[in-house]
Computed example of a mutant assay.
Amino acid sequence: MRTEAFEAMATGEWEFAAGVWQEADLLLWKPPTSWFSINAFFVLDGDGRRLRNWYVNFEHPTCRTDAGFDPLDLIVDLVVAPDLTRWEWKDEDEYAHLRRLGIVSDTEHHAVDAARGEVLAMLTDPSGVFAQAERWAAWRWEPAWPTPRLPRPVAAARRVAPEGG
């Protein structure tokens, strides 16, 4: 399945498929110009729920479309323990494969490398989301909150490759 996804990434052609998120609740932070998002995965645990892990997903900066937001996952990720004491890189072999296929350009690779450094600095000396990790680990969705709705974009955005990419 992932190999097929890489082929689709290489050709730039794929189709949307219906799906329902399962397994865990997700709280996601994605600064629009950032080359990563920080995700908190929550799972049921006895009578409540707990933070399973932090997950840093390296991806293109956010692109707004008529359908919402169009992220482009760059495959490599960082899985972080709930207490921020340890972390582990994930899918580096697949990321290297995408580089060999030319799906991730040199320009994109440099942006991901810079983002990796930024995230590691945020973990080493807790800053950004990680400065308030305990507070976010206790966060709960209020069921009475209305379902968020995106406003229609003023003009249709299009994906623009980074300069040199």
Results as ranks from 00 to 15, higher is better:
Phe42Pro: 11
Arg52Asn: 14
Gln132Cys: 13
Arg116Met: 07
Asn57Arg: 02
Arg158Phe: 11
Trp54Ala: 05
Lys90His: 10
Val129Asn: 03
Ala156Ser: 12
Arg64Trp: 08
Glu108Ser: 04
Leu78Gly: 04
Trp87Asp: 12
Arg50Met: 14
Asp77Phe: 01
Glu92Tyr: 07
Glu94Pro: 02
Leu27His: 04
Ala156His: 12
Val104Asp: 00
Thr3Asn: 08
Ser105Val: 04
Gln22Gly: 07
Glu23Gly: 06
Leu120Gln: 10
Val56Pro: 01
Glu59Ile: 00
Gln132Met: 13
Trp139Ile: 14
Phe69Asn: 06
Arg50Leu: 09
Ala81Asn: 10
Trp141Gln: 13
Gly128Gln: 06
Lys30Gln: 13
Phe42Met: 10
Thr62Trp: 01
Asp25Lys: 04
Gly117Trp: 06
Trp136Pro: 06
Pro143His: 06
Glu88Ile: 07
Val112Lys: 00
Pro151Asn: 10
Asp93Ala: 11
Ala155Glu: 15
Ala67Tyr: 10
Leu98Ser: 04
Asp106Leu: 08
Asp93Ser: 07
His60Gln: 14
Ala8Cys: 11
Ala114Ile: 02
Thr3Asp: 11
Glu94Tyr: 05
Ala10Gly: 04
Ala5Phe: 11
Ile103Glu: 01
Ala40Glu: 11
Asp66Leu: 14
Val43Gln: 10
Val154Tyr: 07
Arg86Met: 05
Phe42Asp: 09
Asn39Glu: 14
Pro146Asn: 05
Arg2Tyr: 10
Pro151Val: 07
Arg159Cys: 06
Gly46Tyr: 13
Thr107Met: 01
Glu142Arg: 13
Thr65Ala: 01
Glu4Lys: 06
Ile38Lys: 03
Trp21Lys: 05
Thr107Cys: 02
Pro61Asn: 11
Thr11Pro: 03
Val129Glu: 06
Glu23Tyr: 12
Pro143Lys: 05
Glu118His: 13
Pro162Thr: 14
Ala114Trp: 03
Ala157Asn: 14
Ala10Met: 07
Arg116Lys: 11
His60Asn: 09
Ala121Gln: 10
Phe69Tyr: 15
Ala40Pro: 03
Arg86Gln: 11
Ala96Glu: 10
Asp45Cys: 13
Ala138Ser: 14
Pro153Tyr: 15
Arg52Ala: 08
Gln132Phe: 10
Trp136Phe: 13
Val119Trp: 00
Val112Arg: 00
Glu7Asp: 15
